[in-house]
Design a protein around this nucleic acid. Structure first.
Lengths: 175, 175
DNA sequence: AATTACGTACAGTTAAAACTGTACAGAGTT
DNA sequence: AACTCTGTACAGTTTTAACTGTACGTAATT
């Protein structure tokens, strides 16, 4: 009976991990990173690299690089314990806030970067476009130019939309 | 001079494709699909599979599967030309609307699916949890249960947030 | 009806990503 | 200072995804 229950719990743990990972993958995490995060999230108390390694059946190296990525995204934090040599990591609480803000940050900076690049190319093209005499090339350049304008606008709308999505602007309850 | 300009235009075309693809990849397109879409988007008038194949230097098979994916996401449409045997495809206008709504749809359905799955597991666990007598397992099950509650809430917030992002609800200008 | 042209399924290949084991640098202990 | 322990860089391997070529079904043309 006890053994059976143990299997049940373990089993559920696995299923939940699998299912929740799918959601986190939509935030841009790799399958491996997602599973790692969920493992940390479900574990009571922080974990060492070795524990994660054992829990997931992957090498310690993978854990090291994986946890670093999660750390960079602000999804996991390092935690200290007096007189303990190993590094300890735990998942941040406030799932919604952390994931959303990490996600939005990624979008914002990417959208802005790409917008700027395209804008600068747009300027370059504008300069050139006046020197054209060939009718057909002129027309082609013009078509491209108009598309680039659309793209810039597109990026602006993205930035705007995701700004609105930011939980640090709105009043979302903290989970 | 003409040749030089031609190179310039071609070059810019390539750069723009590369840069804009990066943005579209953030919407979940694979690099290949993103490049294909941008190629269609920059091309004046619809293209055949063979044209795409030549433009991207990839096989016609790849174009076929690629364009099908874009079609399924509503990003590309098939277009008819009287007395022309080959299939013709063109990128949809209204970048923002199309990408956003495709994107949101994906999020919504995934979030709802995962939420439901977790909720049903939650119920299953709740049933079991009462039958526990072992103190430690009881505590573990409880911890897991609480996490699952958080996850469900998390998915609800996601659904809510993305609902707000939907351009068909708001009043975004059509690009 | 025979022939040609087109798109796609499928098996096999190539390219990319994820993962591992070893080896080493740096901190902590003795 | 020698020794031990821990995390990570790196090269090599395995796994996964992307791509290709052939072969075939279907529709248009003759």
């Amino acid at each position: 009976m006890v053994v059976k229950d143990h299997h049940f719990l373990e089993d559920m743990h696995t299923k939940v991990t699998h299912e929740f990972s799918k959601t986190l993958e939509m935030f841009g995490l790799t399958p491996a990173d997602a599973r790692l995060f969920v493992t940390l999230y479900l574990h009571q108390g922080p974990m060492t690299l070795d524990e994660m390694s054992q829990a997931l059946g992957k090498s310690k190296t993978s854990m090291s690089t994986g946890v670093r990525g999660l750390l960079d995204q602000g999804l996991v934090e390092r935690v200290w314990k007096k007189g303990f040599r190993k590094d300890l990591y735990q998942a941040n609480e406030n799932l919604y806030r952390n994931f959303m803000s990490s996600y939005i940050k990624k979008w914002q900076s990417a959208a802005n970067g790409q917008k700027n690049t395209i804008e600068s190319m747009e300027g370059e093209l504008k300069d050139r476009i006046q020197k054209y005499n060939n009718q057909e090339e002129m027309q082609q350049a013009d078509q491209l130019y108009r598309r680039m304008e659309d793209m810039v606008r597109f990026h602006e709308w993205i930035a705007e939309a995701f700004k609105e999505l930011d939980p640090s602007d709105n009043d979302h309850p903290s989970d």
